[in-house]
Design a protein around this nucleic acid. Sequence first.
DNA 1: CCACTATCTGGAATTGCTCAATAAAAAGAG
DNA 2: CTCTTTTTATTGAGCAATTCCAGATAGTGG
Lengths: 142, 142
Amino acid sequence: MDDAASLRAAGLRVTAARLAILDAVRQGDHLDADGVARAVRDRVGHVSTQAVYDSLHALTAAGLLRRIEPAGSPARYETRVGDNHHHLVCRTCGTVTDIDCVVGEAPCLQPSQMHGYTVDEAEVVFWGICPACQANGAESTA
Amino acid sequence: MDDAASLRAAGLRVTAARLAILDAVRQGDHLDADGVARAVRDRVGHVSTQAVYDSLHALTAAGLLRRIEPAGSPARYETRVGDNHHHLVCRTCGTVTDIDCVVGEAPCLQPSQMHGYTVDEAEVVFWGICPACQANGAESTA
DNA sequence: CCACTATCTGGAATTGCTCAATAAAAAGAG
DNA sequence: CTCTTTTTATTGAGCAATTCCAGATAGTGG
């Protein structure tokens, strides 16, 4: 199923901006809204910032994109949805890397005490220093 | 060890604002910067917003406070540091509840593929609906 | 009690994101 | 192919959280 079909299946209209956004996010590596906007403009010319935000929300709501928001960083988007994978975030440069779940499917989705909550998602973020930043010593690669 | 001693031990000066911040965060339930500022002012009169932010950073860096930042929410602080506990966040009202780790100590601290990262922390956030919001139907309690 | 420097103050600026009103364009009907 | 309806995009203002700057203040060690 291509992007246009996915959009239609989600009840969304197919526009150049949205196709470009999906493509940009797929190609990019956990881009933030600004990065997506820039990548999209490279593809289809002018697109307003609001259109990017709006589409990003629509696509996220439709389940075509996943939004992650590491502390201290603007929201980032990825196309890998539906599986239970987590993230490795570099404290120095902010790079986000996907990692599959250790325990299998939904590992930590069984908190000991749920305190009456209805839990629907377990989000795991590993914080550390990426290889590049380790090599660069204290220097930032951002 | 009282707060003043903890501050000194961390090489920080003891000021009324900082003691009030530590107390406010301890009493409060995962307060955000604004909530801390208000609680602090209740205790010691006027304190500038910057002093609050600055102190919060200093205290966090010193390990006296832990900062958590659930997606879509301003940063929140808690005094429970040093143990491997996680958080349950309500999608409706944003309330944060502490939960101990399922697997024991540092459960998820063993990602399958580390991709060369030096991991120093595993952060787990469970998303769901708190009991109060479930009872209130779709209504927000925020 | 002094000097030194961490800390606090006040104000302005930045960033990331949202709201509102109008114009444009995709989908379906005829 | 054209028209109509409804979604989507544009422009521009607005907001919240946080940070930066420069100068005043107050802990601390001596």
